[in-house]
Design a protein around this nucleic acid. Sequence first.
DNA 1: TCATAAAAATGTAATCATTACAAATTAATA
DNA 2: TATTAATTTGTAATGATTACATTTTTATGA
Lengths: 139, 139
Amino acid sequence: MDIREIERFLKFNQIKPSHHRLKIYEYLVKNKNHPTADLIYRELVDEIPTLSKTTVYNTLNLFVEKGAAQLITIDESENRYDADMSIHGHFKCKHCGKVYDFPLNFAAIDMGGLQNFQVEENHIYLKGLCNDCQIQKEN
Amino acid sequence: MDIREIERFLKFNQIKPSHHRLKIYEYLVKNKNHPTADLIYRELVDEIPTLSKTTVYNTLNLFVEKGAAQLITIDESENRYDADMSIHGHFKCKHCGKVYDFPLNFAAIDMGGLQNFQVEENHIYLKGLCNDCQIQKEN
DNA sequence: TCATAAAAATGTAATCATTACAAATTAATA
DNA sequence: TATTAATTTGTAATGATTACATTTTTATGA
């Protein structure tokens, strides 16, 4: 997604594409690292010296509200964000802390216990040891 | 689970069954309402006037650490706790706020994208409208 | 039983992520 | 260009959680 596409995408989601919003969304798209608001602020403030942290929070909340990004609560003490709105799961390595995406066959999740429940969001979080950290521990 | 069983269960998990710990665990077992630390404190303080909120936090952290309870991060601003350690999912109704349990066939989740990853925890969170709230909206 | 050490619980203060809010800046419109 | 609306800013407030030193309770051994 280049900056033109991002602009179109935000407009499509009823979000006026201001400069800051474009930059923050671009950060999410280019860095699929599930960042916190604070990390986004720290990464962008050099390039946009007038940026305030409140704007980052406001903007991320707007993205989530309009369905342009999703909030990831895999950590208990901080919120992370992801511009990838396709159905997928997240894996957090307990050793290195990295959050990985993985494909997900959502239809396979049997919701027999929830008849007539209307699902609007799904958040699939796994935790454990990633491949790299397992290898490291073996040596 | 009566208090005897709870005592045995805590011991089995390397947790010394003090009075407060027993009461807090009993609350989790008897009220499957996925409470916050604050709610547990408010519900128990009348019966145990010397209880402190710090003790509730300490105790819940101990339960999670020892594998006697799990931390639920379906809310972005507060931690909830569940003594049910069997594999199951959680559904939060966006209208009434209630958190439901539902059975889960975890094996159905295809983790093709994560070869050699060692999964130690799974947290499956759905959000939407529960049955009751849908009916309410229709009328 | 009493003394002593270890563990648990308490209460207050600190921390840290997030939000509230009012003021300032920027953009849109006529 | 004037005026209004939207966006952004900065600071202060909030609220959940933790740190930490003190007190209380429990366990152990003489």
